[in-house]
Design a protein around this nucleic acid. Structure first.
Lengths: 225, 225
DNA sequence: CTGTATCCGTGTTGATACTG
DNA sequence: CAGTATCAACACGGATACAG
């Protein structure tokens, strides 16, 4: 599908006919869904269905296409899980993992751009990712805790270490535990309402020390970079 | 599945129906040309024709559309130059300028992605930008010089300060001066041939101390991040 | 559950031509 | 030079139906 020589029509791949390396990267970002698929895999390999769950609206055929394209570009690789599972998952290669700073930069820029609508669907991965980017490092230094997040099909746990907030998939355990859908939890975490105000909410469950919990969510704000 | 404000057709704007802030930024990057237009303006305001010169292949109508869209998004603003000139230029707003880390991250990721074709068109802005990103900070520390670049319709000068390589538009002056098209200069700067080998080349002109010149271009490599 | 194959509507692009 | 207007071609996305 890639003709060696000329490209008479700018048809499919390589939308931007440029030698610029940033433009080269844009060929990936520019294609609908593609970068979102990468985002879904940033915390670790996933199965087809779980990727799809994080990308509502994508059709199976398009997801297949994207996965194929990413594999051809050396960004994603299929992995056959060992042992008893023996199911196939999709994993980011080193090249794919290297795109992490791009997502982070995108997040930071996204917050200063007007027009962001937080009522739209938020995937578990995207919520966890945004928290890593938005944490107030100065305020976080000195605080030391672990928190778990039960987001439905996916759960994570994170630790505050030296001002950074690091997250990985895993059981929702820790000093604090939040449970609920990403869309329900996002306004809890990013405020401006207080944690106590969510008491009794059906969509959100919290367990742990309320004072510590409040200190924790105060670290995250969409105002700061 | 989503929210009250359902959008029956995913029509034009807001391609990615997500609350994810990175996805929000992707709406800009995803649209063909849009981000490239921003790149062209990163070093300062430009006129319509000069932007177009940096984006070969874009049609006037599409450039107009993109400029309008960017203006509507608060990323670009039209500025009427004062005094005798009194021509209109396009400038990045603060929001637009804030996207600079995104381009930098894109550049860094672009180099590790396979498939980059440096024979394709390189715009003056993109060459200057890539140099800022690719400079080897460790090696650059301790070296102190200014270099000018005459790229045809556009010229720049840069200074090595404390390991950073900072560039701004301006006359091509300095301890070293390089002249030629970006496509001709890119292989000179990024190697692997030595500067001396370009002696007598028609497409490239160099003036300054050859030894210093070589030390300078050794700071730039597509291998390093 | 994990995809694959096909089909049609439509949005977008790039050419061309034109205006101030 | 700086855009605007029109338009046909086409590639892409989403839906649906189907297969391992």
């Amino acid at each position: 599908m890639t003709v060696p020589g000329e490209s008479p029509r700018p048809s499919r791949r390589s939308i931007h006919e440029e030698g610029c390396i940033a433009a080269h990267a844009l060929d990936i970002l520019g294609e609908r869904w593609t970068f979102l698929v990468m985002r879904e895999l940033m915390f670790g390999p996933k199965r087809f269905g779980l990727i799809r769950a994080g990308l509502p609206g994508i059709s199976a055929s398009v997801l297949t296409q994207r996965l194929e394209g990413l594999e051809a570009s050396g960004i994603v690789q299929r992995v056959l899980l060992p042992k008893p599972a023996e199911v196939q998952v999709y994993a980011l290669t080193d090249v794919g993992l290297a795109a992490r700073p791009v997502i982070e930069a995108l997040c930071r820029w996204g917050v200063v751009m007007p027009g962001h609508d937080p009522t739209k669907f938020i995937s578990p991965t995207s919520l966890m990712f945004s928290m890593m980017v938005m944490v107030d490092a100065d305020a976080a230094r000195g605080l030391d805790l672990r928190a778990g997040f039960d987001l439905g099909r996916e759960s994570f746990q994170g630790a505050l270490v030296d001002g950074r907030w690091e997250v990985e998939p895993g059981p929702a355990e820790g000093d604090l535990v939040f449970a609920g859908s990403p869309n329900a939890l996002a306004p809890v975490i990013y405020g401006p309402r207080r944690l106590a105000d969510w008491e009794g909410s059906e969509a959100v469950r919290f367990s742990g020390d309320p004072v510590l919990g409040q200190r924790f969510i105060d670290l995250f704000s969409l105002r700061r970079g």
